[in-house]
Amino acid sequence: MLDPGSAVKKTKIDKSTSSVPAKAIVGGILAGFVFGFLLQKGGVGTYHILIGQLLFQDWTVVKIMLTAIVVGMIGIFTLHHFAKVNLHTKPTKLGPNIIGGLLFGVGFALIGYCPGTAAAALGQGSWDALFGMAGLVVGSWLYAEMSDPLKRTVEKWGNFGKLTFYDLLPVPKGVVVVSAAGLLTGFLVVLQAFSVR
């Protein structure tokens, strides 16, 4: 199904759509609408379902995320194999990934929504999400305000550049993708067997 690591497509595909703002804006609206619709139907705009995940009572969030990852992974790497999509690899920087990740987590428990699910919460009439969204704007501003000193300090800690698991593992990329999808599916099967919700 997938090519060995040596044949990784490096070419940047020219997507005419990305250079046409109006078309991209319409696309963003369509995709966002579907995303919000799915989040609400999945229950992840709901405070007790999100907080229930953090309390290990309700596994809805993890089930949705892992299913999206498995389905998305298979499709994206297949499309990439046929040079139909670009990958968007984010740089691995241990310092900011871990410190930022933990700060995010603390905020996650306090607000009970995340940046995307807060939008779903607002849409379904959970008005407390408005306070959270105001906080998200303020927090983003604080980061921007500090972005220069942060760039020179924390963001330099443990920088490995753009790094993926198929770069790290000494096996072909296709094998890594199929194994990861299999492993995560196995995890979901076990999770389904043991979780009440």
Binding site: M65, A68, I69, V70, G72, M73, I76, L87, H88, T89, K90, P91, T92, K93, P96, N97, I99, G100, G101, L102, L103, F104, G105, V106, G107, F108, A109, L110, I111, G112, C114, P115, G116, T117, A118, F131, G132, M133, A134, G135, L136, V137, V138, G139, S140, L142, Y143, A144, S147, L150, V154, E155, L163, T164, F165, Y166, V176, V177, A180
Partner: peptide, 28 residues
């Protein structure tokens, strides 16, 4: 919570969507 979350997301380079779904599915 929102303040901490957004600051953390910017520092970490993404949120539960950008990292949690899009980044993980690309095996980042």
């Amino acid at each position: 919570g929102g303040v901490l979350m957004a600051f953390g997301a910017r520092l970490a380079g993404g949120c539960t969507s950008g990292h949690g779904i899009s980044g993980t599915l690309q095996l980042n």
